[in-house]
Design a binder for these strands. Sequence first.
DNA 1: CGCGGGGTTGAGCGCCATCAATTGGAGTGG
DNA 2: CCACTCCAATTGATGGCGCTCAACCCCGCG
Lengths: 224, 224
Amino acid sequence: MYVTISNHKSDYTCPKKLSKRASHLPETRLKAGSHLFHEGDRVERIYQVVSGVVSLTRLLEDGRRQIISFGFPGDIVGFPCDGRHHTDCVALNTVQLQPFRLSQLKSGDGDAALHVDLLQAALHEIAAMQDHFMMLGRKSATEKVAAFLTVLANRAGTVVGQYVQVELPMSRADIADFLGLTTETVSRTISQFRKSRLIALDGAHTVIVLRPEALGSLAEDGFT
Amino acid sequence: MYVTISNHKSDYTCPKKLSKRASHLPETRLKAGSHLFHEGDRVERIYQVVSGVVSLTRLLEDGRRQIISFGFPGDIVGFPCDGRHHTDCVALNTVQLQPFRLSQLKSGDGDAALHVDLLQAALHEIAAMQDHFMMLGRKSATEKVAAFLTVLANRAGTVVGQYVQVELPMSRADIADFLGLTTETVSRTISQFRKSRLIALDGAHTVIVLRPEALGSLAEDGFT
DNA sequence: CGCGGGGTTGAGCGCCATCAATTGGAGTGG
DNA sequence: CCACTCCAATTGATGGCGCTCAACCCCGCG
Protein backbone atom coordinates (compact mmCIF):
# COMPACT_ATOMS: atom_id res chain seq x y z
CA MET A 1 0.00 0.00 0.00
CA TYR A 2 1.32 3.37 -1.01
CA VAL A 3 -0.11 6.79 -0.34
CA THR A 4 -1.40 7.73 -3.73
CA ILE A 5 -3.88 10.54 -4.04
CA SER A 6 -4.02 10.06 -7.76
CA ASN A 7 -5.61 12.35 -10.31
CA HIS A 8 -7.16 9.63 -12.40
CA LYS A 9 -9.44 7.21 -10.71
CA SER A 10 -7.95 3.80 -11.03
CA ASP A 11 -10.20 0.97 -12.07
CA TYR A 12 -7.64 -1.49 -10.82
CA THR A 13 -9.29 -3.86 -8.40
CA CYS A 14 -6.12 -4.67 -6.58
CA PRO A 15 -7.08 -6.68 -3.55
CA LYS A 16 -8.82 -9.44 -5.39
CA LYS A 17 -7.84 -12.79 -4.12
CA LEU A 18 -5.76 -14.75 -6.55
CA SER A 19 -6.75 -18.31 -7.08
CA LYS A 20 -5.41 -20.42 -4.27
CA ARG A 21 -5.70 -23.50 -6.37
CA ALA A 22 -3.26 -22.00 -8.83
CA SER A 23 -0.59 -21.74 -6.19
CA HIS A 24 -0.24 -25.37 -5.15
CA LEU A 25 1.46 -24.00 -2.06
CA PRO A 26 -0.03 -23.95 1.45
CA GLU A 27 -0.69 -20.66 3.23
CA THR A 28 1.98 -19.27 5.54
CA ARG A 29 1.33 -17.82 8.99
CA LEU A 30 3.48 -15.24 10.73
CA LYS A 31 3.41 -13.80 14.22
CA ALA A 32 3.76 -10.09 14.89
CA GLY A 33 7.36 -8.97 14.63
CA SER A 34 8.72 -11.94 12.73
CA HIS A 35 10.41 -11.68 9.37
CA LEU A 36 9.05 -13.10 6.15
CA PHE A 37 12.36 -12.34 4.43
CA HIS A 38 15.41 -10.14 4.76
CA GLU A 39 17.12 -7.77 2.39
CA GLY A 40 19.55 -9.74 0.26
CA ASP A 41 17.73 -13.06 0.68
CA ARG A 42 17.40 -15.15 -2.42
CA VAL A 43 13.83 -14.93 -3.68
CA GLU A 44 12.03 -18.25 -3.55
CA ARG A 45 8.44 -17.14 -3.45
CA ILE A 46 6.28 -14.11 -3.83
CA TYR A 47 3.27 -13.68 -1.58
CA GLN A 48 -0.20 -12.26 -1.51
CA VAL A 49 -1.23 -10.96 1.88
CA VAL A 50 -4.44 -12.72 2.90
CA SER A 51 -4.93 -11.15 6.32
CA GLY A 52 -2.88 -8.93 8.60
CA VAL A 53 -0.32 -6.33 7.58
CA VAL A 54 3.39 -6.47 6.74
CA SER A 55 5.95 -3.73 6.24
CA LEU A 56 8.70 -3.61 3.62
CA THR A 57 11.69 -1.69 4.94
CA ARG A 58 15.16 -0.65 3.93
CA LEU A 59 17.94 0.39 6.29
CA LEU A 60 20.99 2.63 6.05
CA GLU A 61 24.18 1.73 7.91
CA ASP A 62 23.72 4.70 10.23
CA GLY A 63 20.29 3.49 11.30
CA ARG A 64 18.10 5.66 9.13
CA ARG A 65 15.13 3.65 7.98
CA GLN A 66 12.63 3.95 5.16
CA ILE A 67 9.46 1.92 4.98
CA ILE A 68 8.90 1.27 1.29
CA SER A 69 5.33 0.11 1.64
CA PHE A 70 2.82 -1.61 3.86
CA GLY A 71 1.34 -4.85 2.61
CA PHE A 72 -2.39 -4.99 3.29
CA PRO A 73 -4.70 -7.87 2.41
CA GLY A 74 -4.71 -8.30 -1.35
CA ASP A 75 -1.28 -6.76 -1.84
CA ILE A 76 1.50 -8.74 -3.48
CA VAL A 77 4.91 -8.55 -1.82
CA GLY A 78 8.33 -9.90 -2.65
CA PHE A 79 8.87 -8.88 -6.26
CA PRO A 80 12.39 -9.99 -7.03
CA CYS A 81 15.24 -8.32 -8.83
CA ASP A 82 18.31 -10.26 -9.84
CA GLY A 83 16.82 -13.07 -7.78
CA ARG A 84 17.14 -11.20 -4.49
CA HIS A 85 14.92 -9.24 -2.12
CA HIS A 86 15.76 -5.58 -1.79
CA THR A 87 13.84 -5.02 1.44
CA ASP A 88 13.14 -6.62 4.77
CA CYS A 89 9.59 -7.84 5.23
CA VAL A 90 8.21 -7.85 8.78
CA ALA A 91 4.77 -8.81 10.09
CA LEU A 92 3.09 -6.00 12.05
CA ASN A 93 0.47 -8.33 13.47
CA THR A 94 -0.60 -11.89 12.84
CA VAL A 95 -0.40 -12.40 9.11
CA GLN A 96 -1.61 -15.02 6.66
CA LEU A 97 0.11 -15.21 3.30
CA GLN A 98 -0.52 -17.12 0.11
CA PRO A 99 2.81 -18.00 -1.52
CA PHE A 100 3.36 -18.28 -5.24
CA ARG A 101 6.27 -19.78 -7.07
CA LEU A 102 8.55 -17.35 -8.86
CA SER A 103 7.96 -19.28 -12.06
CA GLN A 104 4.31 -18.37 -11.81
CA LEU A 105 5.23 -14.70 -12.18
CA LYS A 106 7.76 -15.29 -14.90
CA SER A 107 5.82 -17.63 -17.13
CA GLY A 108 2.57 -18.52 -15.44
CA ASP A 109 3.79 -22.07 -15.07
CA GLY A 110 0.93 -23.29 -17.15
CA ASP A 111 -1.66 -21.00 -15.57
CA ALA A 112 -1.92 -18.10 -18.01
CA ALA A 113 -4.53 -16.20 -15.99
CA LEU A 114 -2.35 -16.22 -12.89
CA HIS A 115 0.61 -15.03 -14.94
CA VAL A 116 -1.41 -12.06 -16.18
CA ASP A 117 -2.63 -11.25 -12.68
CA LEU A 118 0.87 -11.25 -11.23
CA LEU A 119 2.21 -9.14 -14.06
CA GLN A 120 -0.70 -6.76 -13.62
CA ALA A 121 0.14 -6.50 -9.93
CA ALA A 122 3.76 -5.65 -10.76
CA LEU A 123 2.69 -2.91 -13.16
CA HIS A 124 0.26 -1.53 -10.62
CA GLU A 125 3.08 -1.52 -8.11
CA ILE A 126 5.13 0.68 -10.43
CA ALA A 127 2.29 3.16 -10.90
CA ALA A 128 1.54 3.32 -7.18
CA MET A 129 5.20 3.93 -6.38
CA GLN A 130 5.29 6.75 -8.92
CA ASP A 131 2.42 8.44 -7.15
CA HIS A 132 4.14 7.92 -3.82
CA PHE A 133 7.25 9.77 -5.02
CA MET A 134 5.23 12.97 -5.18
CA MET A 135 4.29 12.47 -1.55
CA LEU A 136 7.81 11.96 -0.34
CA GLY A 137 9.40 14.65 -2.46
CA ARG A 138 6.91 17.44 -2.53
CA LYS A 139 4.33 17.29 0.26
CA SER A 140 4.31 18.91 3.69
CA ALA A 141 4.01 16.99 6.92
CA THR A 142 0.33 17.92 7.21
CA GLU A 143 -0.41 16.77 3.67
CA LYS A 144 1.49 13.53 4.17
CA VAL A 145 -0.28 12.51 7.35
CA ALA A 146 -3.69 13.59 6.06
CA ALA A 147 -3.15 11.62 2.86
CA PHE A 148 -1.96 8.61 4.81
CA LEU A 149 -5.01 8.56 7.06
CA THR A 150 -7.34 9.13 4.12
CA VAL A 151 -5.91 6.30 2.07
CA LEU A 152 -5.88 4.01 5.07
CA ALA A 153 -9.49 4.81 5.94
CA ASN A 154 -10.57 4.07 2.37
CA ARG A 155 -8.55 0.91 2.17
CA ALA A 156 -8.95 -0.60 5.61
CA GLY A 157 -11.66 1.42 7.32
CA THR A 158 -14.96 0.15 8.64
CA VAL A 159 -18.11 2.24 8.79
CA VAL A 160 -19.20 2.76 12.39
CA GLY A 161 -22.35 4.82 12.70
CA GLN A 162 -21.85 7.89 10.53
CA TYR A 163 -18.08 7.79 10.77
CA VAL A 164 -15.29 5.65 9.40
CA GLN A 165 -13.05 3.90 11.85
CA VAL A 166 -9.65 2.50 11.04
CA GLU A 167 -7.07 0.51 12.96
CA LEU A 168 -3.42 1.48 12.66
CA PRO A 169 -1.45 -1.74 13.03
CA MET A 170 1.83 0.17 12.80
CA SER A 171 3.61 2.40 15.31
CA ARG A 172 4.11 6.14 14.97
CA ALA A 173 7.73 5.42 14.14
CA ASP A 174 6.59 3.17 11.29
CA ILE A 175 4.34 5.89 9.93
CA ALA A 176 7.19 8.38 10.21
CA ASP A 177 9.62 6.12 8.37
CA PHE A 178 7.00 5.57 5.69
CA LEU A 179 6.29 9.28 5.15
CA GLY A 180 9.83 10.56 5.59
CA LEU A 181 9.13 12.33 8.90
CA THR A 182 9.95 11.84 12.58
CA THR A 183 7.71 10.21 15.17
CA GLU A 184 7.36 13.53 16.93
CA THR A 185 6.11 15.27 13.81
CA VAL A 186 3.66 12.47 13.08
CA SER A 187 2.37 12.59 16.62
CA ARG A 188 2.05 16.36 16.60
CA THR A 189 0.24 16.37 13.28
CA ILE A 190 -2.22 13.75 14.44
CA SER A 191 -2.82 15.71 17.65
CA GLN A 192 -3.51 18.77 15.56
CA PHE A 193 -6.10 16.89 13.49
CA ARG A 194 -7.70 15.75 16.74
CA LYS A 195 -7.81 19.26 18.16
CA SER A 196 -9.44 20.59 15.00
CA ARG A 197 -11.99 17.80 15.19
CA LEU A 198 -11.05 16.22 11.89
CA ILE A 199 -10.50 12.93 13.61
CA ALA A 200 -10.92 11.34 17.02
CA LEU A 201 -8.72 8.76 18.66
CA ASP A 202 -9.72 5.71 20.67
CA GLY A 203 -6.32 4.76 21.96
CA ALA A 204 -3.27 5.52 19.88
CA HIS A 205 -4.05 2.91 17.27
CA THR A 206 -7.70 3.53 16.47
CA VAL A 207 -8.63 6.54 14.37
CA ILE A 208 -12.18 7.71 13.79
CA VAL A 209 -12.42 9.99 10.82
CA LEU A 210 -14.99 12.66 11.60
CA ARG A 211 -14.68 14.85 8.52
CA PRO A 212 -13.30 12.79 5.63
CA GLU A 213 -13.73 15.57 3.04
CA ALA A 214 -11.81 18.08 5.12
CA LEU A 215 -9.07 15.55 5.77
CA GLY A 216 -9.01 14.70 2.07
CA SER A 217 -8.62 18.31 1.02
CA LEU A 218 -5.82 18.74 3.54
CA ALA A 219 -4.16 15.81 1.81
CA GLU A 220 -4.20 17.57 -1.53
CA ASP A 221 -3.17 21.11 -0.76
CA GLY A 222 -2.57 21.43 2.97
CA PHE A 223 -5.30 24.02 3.55
CA THR A 224 -8.74 24.18 5.21
CA MET B 1 17.37 6.17 -14.04
CA TYR B 2 16.97 6.44 -10.32
CA VAL B 3 19.45 7.46 -7.69
CA THR B 4 20.18 4.19 -6.03
CA ILE B 5 23.25 3.83 -3.93
CA SER B 6 22.41 0.24 -3.19
CA ASN B 7 24.00 -2.05 -0.63
CA HIS B 8 24.13 -5.11 -2.79
CA LYS B 9 25.90 -4.87 -6.11
CA SER B 10 23.39 -5.51 -8.80
CA ASP B 11 24.42 -7.84 -11.59
CA TYR B 12 21.58 -6.49 -13.67
CA THR B 13 22.89 -5.37 -17.04
CA CYS B 14 20.13 -2.91 -17.62
CA PRO B 15 21.10 -0.92 -20.66
CA LYS B 16 21.42 -3.80 -23.01
CA LYS B 17 19.80 -3.13 -26.29
CA LEU B 18 16.73 -5.21 -26.84
CA SER B 19 16.43 -6.88 -30.17
CA LYS B 20 15.20 -4.39 -32.72
CA ARG B 21 14.00 -7.16 -34.95
CA ALA B 22 11.68 -8.32 -32.24
CA SER B 23 9.88 -5.01 -32.24
CA HIS B 24 8.69 -4.83 -35.83
CA LEU B 25 8.24 -1.12 -35.18
CA PRO B 26 10.44 1.66 -36.57
CA GLU B 27 12.44 3.90 -34.27
CA THR B 28 10.90 7.17 -33.11
CA ARG B 29 12.71 10.50 -33.02
CA LEU B 30 11.89 13.38 -30.70
CA LYS B 31 13.20 16.92 -30.50
CA ALA B 32 14.14 18.57 -27.23
CA GLY B 33 11.08 19.71 -25.31
CA SER B 34 8.51 17.63 -27.15
CA HIS B 35 6.28 15.10 -25.43
CA LEU B 36 6.38 11.37 -26.02
CA PHE B 37 3.17 10.97 -24.04
CA HIS B 38 1.08 12.74 -21.41
CA GLU B 39 -0.29 11.64 -18.08
CA GLY B 40 -3.63 9.95 -18.69
CA ASP B 41 -2.85 8.97 -22.27
CA ARG B 42 -3.88 5.51 -23.30
CA VAL B 43 -0.80 3.31 -23.49
CA GLU B 44 -0.11 2.08 -27.00
CA ARG B 45 3.59 1.36 -26.83
CA ILE B 46 6.43 1.09 -24.40
CA TYR B 47 9.84 2.36 -25.41
CA GLN B 48 13.49 1.72 -24.91
CA VAL B 49 15.61 4.85 -25.03
CA VAL B 50 18.26 4.39 -27.71
CA SER B 51 19.96 7.78 -27.46
CA GLY B 52 19.24 11.05 -25.67
CA VAL B 53 17.44 11.52 -22.37
CA VAL B 54 13.78 11.83 -21.40
CA SER B 55 12.12 12.81 -18.12
CA LEU B 56 9.05 11.25 -16.56
CA THR B 57 7.15 13.84 -14.53
CA ARG B 58 4.02 14.19 -12.45
CA LEU B 59 2.27 17.47 -11.62
CA LEU B 60 0.10 18.72 -8.79
CA GLU B 61 -2.71 21.18 -9.51
CA ASP B 62 -0.86 23.91 -7.63
CA GLY B 63 2.17 23.55 -9.87
CA ARG B 64 4.38 21.42 -7.65
CA ARG B 65 6.25 18.97 -9.80
CA GLN B 66 8.04 15.70 -9.20
CA ILE B 67 10.31 14.09 -11.73
CA ILE B 68 9.83 10.36 -11.29
CA SER B 69 12.85 9.31 -13.26
CA PHE B 70 15.15 10.18 -16.13
CA GLY B 71 15.24 7.81 -19.06
CA PHE B 72 18.82 7.26 -20.23
CA PRO B 73 19.88 5.05 -23.14
CA GLY B 74 18.93 1.48 -22.33
CA ASP B 75 16.11 2.43 -19.98
CA ILE B 76 12.56 1.28 -20.66
CA VAL B 77 9.83 3.89 -20.24
CA GLY B 78 6.06 3.83 -20.44
CA PHE B 79 5.08 0.92 -18.23
CA PRO B 80 1.30 1.02 -18.22
CA CYS B 81 -1.23 0.65 -15.44
CA ASP B 82 -4.88 0.17 -16.23
CA GLY B 83 -3.91 0.91 -19.80
CA ARG B 84 -2.88 4.49 -19.06
CA HIS B 85 0.26 6.47 -18.51
CA HIS B 86 0.68 7.94 -15.04
CA THR B 87 3.36 10.46 -16.00
CA ASP B 88 4.27 12.93 -18.70
CA CYS B 89 7.28 11.98 -20.77
CA VAL B 90 9.35 14.83 -22.22
CA ALA B 91 12.53 14.76 -24.28
CA LEU B 92 15.38 16.75 -22.72
CA ASN B 93 17.42 16.68 -25.91
CA THR B 94 17.19 14.92 -29.24
CA VAL B 95 16.00 11.41 -28.47
CA GLN B 96 15.78 8.15 -30.38
CA LEU B 97 13.39 5.53 -29.08
CA GLN B 98 12.67 1.94 -29.98
CA PRO B 99 8.96 1.23 -29.51
CA PHE B 100 7.51 -2.09 -28.47
CA ARG B 101 3.96 -3.27 -28.60
CA LEU B 102 2.20 -3.63 -25.29
CA SER B 103 1.42 -7.21 -26.17
CA GLN B 104 5.15 -7.88 -26.22
CA LEU B 105 5.34 -7.05 -22.55
CA LYS B 106 2.21 -8.92 -21.63
CA SER B 107 2.79 -12.15 -23.51
CA GLY B 108 5.91 -11.77 -25.63
CA ASP B 109 3.76 -11.95 -28.72
CA GLY B 110 5.55 -15.02 -29.82
CA ASP B 111 9.02 -13.83 -28.82
CA ALA B 112 9.61 -15.42 -25.44
CA ALA B 113 13.06 -13.90 -24.93
CA LEU B 114 11.72 -10.39 -25.44
CA HIS B 115 8.90 -11.08 -23.00
CA VAL B 116 11.39 -12.14 -20.34
CA ASP B 117 13.55 -9.08 -20.99
CA LEU B 118 10.65 -6.66 -20.66
CA LEU B 119 9.39 -8.37 -17.52
CA GLN B 120 12.91 -8.26 -16.11
CA ALA B 121 13.03 -4.55 -16.86
CA ALA B 122 9.77 -4.00 -15.00
CA LEU B 123 11.05 -5.87 -11.95
CA HIS B 124 14.29 -3.94 -12.04
CA GLU B 125 12.25 -0.76 -12.19
CA ILE B 126 10.49 -1.75 -8.96
CA ALA B 127 13.76 -2.45 -7.17
CA ALA B 128 15.36 0.78 -8.37
CA MET B 129 12.34 2.78 -7.24
CA GLN B 130 12.52 1.14 -3.83
CA ASP B 131 16.10 2.29 -3.46
CA HIS B 132 15.12 5.76 -4.60
CA PHE B 133 12.54 6.07 -1.79
CA MET B 134 15.35 6.12 0.74
CA MET B 135 16.87 9.08 -1.10
CA LEU B 136 13.72 11.11 -1.18
CA GLY B 137 12.58 10.33 2.32
CA ARG B 138 15.71 10.21 4.38
CA LYS B 139 18.69 11.93 2.77
CA SER B 140 19.96 15.48 3.18
CA ALA B 141 20.37 17.90 0.30
CA THR B 142 24.12 17.29 0.24
CA GLU B 143 23.67 13.53 0.14
CA LYS B 144 21.04 13.77 -2.57
CA VAL B 145 23.07 15.92 -4.94
CA ALA B 146 26.28 13.97 -4.30
CA ALA B 147 24.47 10.71 -4.99
CA PHE B 148 22.88 12.13 -8.10
CA LEU B 149 26.19 13.27 -9.56
CA THR B 150 27.87 9.99 -8.61
CA VAL B 151 25.22 7.85 -10.26
CA LEU B 152 25.17 10.05 -13.31
CA ALA B 153 28.95 9.96 -13.67
CA ASN B 154 28.93 6.17 -13.45
CA ARG B 155 26.07 5.83 -15.85
CA ALA B 156 26.73 8.50 -18.43
CA GLY B 157 30.24 9.78 -17.72
CA THR B 158 33.21 9.65 -20.06
CA VAL B 159 36.80 9.36 -18.90
CA VAL B 160 38.77 12.48 -19.81
CA GLY B 161 42.37 12.31 -18.74
CA GLN B 162 42.38 11.21 -15.12
CA TYR B 163 38.89 12.54 -14.40
CA VAL B 164 35.36 11.63 -15.32
CA GLN B 165 33.28 14.14 -17.19
CA VAL B 166 29.52 14.06 -17.45
CA GLU B 167 26.96 16.13 -19.32
CA LEU B 168 23.79 17.20 -17.50
CA PRO B 169 21.09 17.34 -20.14
CA MET B 170 18.57 18.59 -17.57
CA SER B 171 18.14 22.00 -15.92
CA ARG B 172 18.74 22.74 -12.25
CA ALA B 173 14.98 22.86 -11.82
CA ASP B 174 14.74 19.34 -13.23
CA ILE B 175 17.36 18.08 -10.81
CA ALA B 176 15.53 19.80 -7.97
CA ASP B 177 12.18 18.28 -8.90
CA PHE B 178 13.86 14.90 -9.17
CA LEU B 179 15.52 15.09 -5.74
CA GLY B 180 12.73 16.86 -3.88
CA LEU B 181 14.65 20.13 -3.47
CA THR B 182 14.55 23.66 -4.90
CA THR B 183 16.71 24.99 -7.71
CA GLU B 184 18.44 27.32 -5.29
CA THR B 185 19.41 24.48 -2.99
CA VAL B 186 20.69 22.38 -5.90
CA SER B 187 22.70 25.30 -7.20
CA ARG B 188 24.13 26.11 -3.78
CA THR B 189 25.08 22.50 -3.15
CA ILE B 190 26.83 22.18 -6.49
CA SER B 191 28.69 25.43 -5.83
CA GLN B 192 29.79 24.02 -2.51
CA PHE B 193 31.17 20.90 -4.17
CA ARG B 194 33.02 23.13 -6.61
CA LYS B 195 34.49 25.27 -3.85
CA SER B 196 35.71 22.19 -1.99
CA ARG B 197 37.29 20.91 -5.23
CA LEU B 198 35.20 17.76 -5.41
CA ILE B 199 34.06 18.71 -8.87
CA ALA B 200 34.73 21.35 -11.50
CA LEU B 201 32.27 22.92 -13.90
CA ASP B 202 32.71 23.73 -17.56
CA GLY B 203 29.56 25.71 -18.09
CA ALA B 204 26.49 24.90 -16.04
CA HIS B 205 25.87 21.61 -17.79
CA THR B 206 29.22 19.92 -17.80
CA VAL B 207 30.55 18.43 -14.58
CA ILE B 208 34.06 17.10 -14.13
CA VAL B 209 34.32 14.85 -11.12
CA LEU B 210 37.69 15.44 -9.49
CA ARG B 211 37.38 13.23 -6.41
CA PRO B 212 34.85 10.46 -7.08
CA GLU B 213 35.51 8.62 -3.80
CA ALA B 214 34.95 11.74 -1.72
CA LEU B 215 31.78 12.54 -3.63
CA GLY B 216 30.65 8.96 -3.21
CA SER B 217 31.17 8.97 0.52
CA LEU B 218 29.27 12.24 0.76
CA ALA B 219 26.44 10.45 -1.00
CA GLU B 220 26.27 7.78 1.69
CA ASP B 221 26.58 9.66 4.92
CA GLY B 222 26.94 13.35 4.16
CA PHE B 223 30.40 13.70 5.72
CA THR B 224 33.96 14.28 4.51
C1' DC C 1 23.71 46.47 -27.65
C1' DG C 2 19.48 45.32 -25.37
C1' DC C 3 16.74 41.52 -24.02
C1' DG C 4 15.41 37.27 -21.69
C1' DG C 5 15.83 33.16 -19.28
C1' DG C 6 18.46 30.07 -16.61
C1' DG C 7 21.86 30.01 -12.96
C1' DT C 8 24.04 31.88 -8.87
C1' DT C 9 24.27 34.19 -4.60
C1' DG C 10 22.40 36.60 -0.53
C1' DA C 11 19.21 37.56 3.58
C1' DG C 12 15.74 36.00 6.47
C1' DC C 13 12.47 32.92 8.07
C1' DG C 14 9.58 28.82 8.76
C1' DC C 15 8.94 24.03 8.96
C1' DC C 16 10.40 20.19 10.82
C1' DA C 17 14.29 17.76 13.29
C1' DT C 18 16.45 17.37 17.60
C1' DC C 19 16.80 16.91 22.39
C1' DA C 20 14.39 16.32 26.52
C1' DA C 21 10.68 15.62 29.86
C1' DT C 22 6.19 13.82 30.80
C1' DT C 23 2.17 11.06 30.07
C1' DG C 24 -0.27 7.01 28.97
C1' DG C 25 -1.35 2.29 28.20
C1' DA C 26 -0.35 -2.57 27.81
C1' DG C 27 1.71 -6.33 30.10
C1' DT C 28 3.33 -8.68 34.36
C1' DG C 29 3.46 -10.25 38.83
C1' DG C 30 2.05 -9.81 43.56
C1' DC D 1 -7.42 -5.54 41.64
C1' DC D 2 -3.52 -2.80 42.22
C1' DA D 3 1.50 -1.71 41.94
C1' DC D 4 5.12 -1.62 39.07
C1' DT D 5 7.68 -1.70 34.76
C1' DC D 6 8.65 -0.42 30.30
C1' DC D 7 8.18 1.43 26.07
C1' DA D 8 5.36 3.99 22.92
C1' DA D 9 3.23 8.29 22.44
C1' DT D 10 2.70 12.99 23.50
C1' DT D 11 4.15 17.58 24.47
C1' DG D 12 7.50 21.28 25.02
C1' DA D 13 11.75 24.11 23.88
C1' DT D 14 15.18 25.14 20.74
C1' DG D 15 17.90 25.17 16.63
C1' DG D 16 19.21 24.28 11.83
C1' DC D 17 18.44 22.89 7.16
C1' DG D 18 16.40 24.09 3.30
C1' DC D 19 12.58 27.14 1.43
C1' DT D 20 11.21 31.81 0.06
C1' DC D 21 11.89 36.10 -1.82
C1' DA D 22 14.92 38.98 -4.22
C1' DA D 23 18.92 40.78 -6.60
C1' DC D 24 22.44 39.91 -9.65
C1' DC D 25 25.20 37.45 -13.06
C1' DC D 26 26.04 35.03 -17.19
C1' DC D 27 25.40 33.94 -21.79
C1' DG D 28 23.03 33.11 -26.04
C1' DC D 29 20.37 35.55 -29.34
C1' DG D 30 17.94 38.94 -32.07
